[in-house]
Lab assay of single mutants.
Amino acid sequence: QWKVGDKCSAIWSEDGCIYPATIASIDFKRETCVVVYTGYGNREEQNLSDLLSPICE
Rank of each mutant, 00 (worst) to 15 (best):
I11Y: 09
R30E: 11
V36H: 02
T22W: 10
Q46L: 09
R43W: 13
R43L: 09
G41W: 07
T38P: 00
I23K: 00
V4K: 00
F28E: 13
Y37C: 07
A21D: 02
A24L: 15
I23F: 01
D15Y: 06
I26P: 04
K3R: 08
G39I: 11
I26M: 01
S9M: 15
C8R: 00
I26C: 03
W12Q: 04
E45L: 07
A21G: 06
G5R: 00
G5E: 11
A21V: 11
Y19S: 03
F28C: 06
G39M: 10
C17M: 15
G41D: 06
P20Y: 11
I55G: 12
I55E: 11
I23Q: 02
V34A: 01
C33I: 08
I26N: 06
C56N: 14
Y19A: 01
R30W: 06
D6A: 00
Q1W: 10
Q1T: 11
E44Q: 04
Y40N: 15
F28T: 11
E14C: 10
K29A: 13
K29E: 14
S53R: 13
D27K: 01
A24H: 13
K7E: 13
T32W: 09
T22D: 04
C56V: 15
Y19W: 04
E45W: 05
A21Y: 05
P54L: 07
I11A: 04
P54G: 08
G39V: 10
D15G: 07
Y19P: 02
E14I: 15
Y19V: 04
G5S: 03
L52S: 02
A10P: 02
G16H: 04
C8Y: 00
V4D: 14
G39A: 09
S53V: 10
C8W: 01
D50W: 08
I11V: 13
G5C: 12
A21H: 08
I18Q: 03
A21F: 06
C33G: 00
A10D: 06
C8H: 00
T22Q: 08
I23G: 03
I26Q: 00
R30S: 11
P20E: 13
D6H: 00
I11T: 07
P20Q: 11
T22F: 09
G41R: 04
I23M: 02
V4C: 12
A10R: 00
L51H: 02
V34P: 02
A21R: 01
R30Y: 11
G16K: 02
A24S: 07
A10K: 03
I55Y: 13
A10V: 13
S49R: 13
S49P: 04
T38A: 11
R43P: 06
D15N: 12
I11H: 05
V36L: 08
T32Q: 05
D50V: 07
C17E: 13
E44L: 03
W2S: 11
D15I: 04
C33Q: 01
E31V: 04
W12L: 05
K7L: 12
F28I: 11
E57G: 13
D50G: 04
I18G: 04
S49C: 10
K3H: 13
L48Q: 02
D6N: 00
I11R: 15
L51T: 04
S13A: 08
T22I: 14
C56L: 15
G41L: 06
E31L: 14
T22R: 06
V34G: 01
G5I: 05
I55R: 09
D6G: 00
Q1K: 14
T22E: 10
G41H: 07
R30K: 13
S13P: 04
E31R: 14
P54E: 04
Y40D: 05
L52A: 01
Q46H: 14
W12C: 12
W2L: 12
A10N: 04
A24P: 05
E45I: 11
I26E: 05
G39S: 09
L48T: 06
V35H: 01
A21Q: 01
D15A: 02
S49N: 08
A21C: 15
N42Q: 11
C33H: 00
K3V: 13
E31I: 04
E57K: 02
E44W: 06
N42E: 08
L51E: 04
G16E: 05
E14K: 15
W2V: 11
E57C: 13
V35Q: 05
E31T: 02
V34E: 08
L52Q: 04
E31P: 00
E31A: 13
E44T: 03
Y37R: 01
E44K: 00
D27R: 00
D27I: 09
S25V: 09
E45R: 07
D27S: 01
N42H: 15
P54Q: 06
V35R: 00
K3Y: 13
P54W: 08
P54R: 10
A24I: 15
K29T: 13
D6T: 00
I23D: 04
I23P: 05
V35C: 07
E44H: 02
S49T: 07
D27C: 08
D50P: 02
A10H: 05
N42P: 05
S53I: 10
